[in-house]
Amino acid sequence: MRNVLDKNQDKADDIRQLLKQNQVVMFNFISSPGAGKTSLLELLCENLAPEYNIGIIEGDAYTDRDARRLIKYNLPIIQINTEGGCHLDSNSISGALAEFDLNKLDVVFVENVGNLICPTAFDLGENYCIALTSTTEGDDKPTKYPMLFRKADSIILNKIDLIPYTNFNINSFKADLQKLGVNIPLFEISCMQQAGINNVLDWFKVIIESK
């Protein structure tokens, strides 16, 4: 009997140990492509960088377009291109973390490859996993991707400003989360309109402060 992902798990546990030693907290952002991971990171960097030292690991199948959007914050950014791979793993994160001066960081944000299934199978050694979803994707995501929503420590629902133009039903979204037995913070925001972001920022701040 042997778990196929034993090695990934061992490395993820090493990463958590390394983060702990350096008093760094790491967040893993998982969403489908286009849900707004990079927009959310822009908001977080904009608002948290004045107070905390942030490092970013950008996962992308082929490009560095997301990383280039974040260059303006003048933060250490490591790009991981998976060459078509649909997820990051702990090995790639371990390599990326080695390029940071962890002593000088408080937080690492990891933007996973846009995908709601594959990244959930791979523990990156993060301390918190965030499931990001957006109203334009529909309200059925919790039912279709239970593993992500059960793995997550918080859910961020983006693009709430677009609800009037979609058939997204917030009540069925919440009811489906209930059916999964998921009882974690849910933040309803719009990155574009900067709506609802104070609660999200507070959630991050409390975690970073208590690291």
Binding site: V4, L5, D6, G85, C86, H87, D89, N115, C118, F122
Partner: peptide, 14 residues
């Protein structure tokens, strides 16, 4: 699609 990645891990063990 992570089927391929899981299989790669499986072959490492094999």
């Amino acid at each position: 699609m992570h089927e391929i990645a899981i299989v790669n891990h499986l072959f490492e063990i094999i």
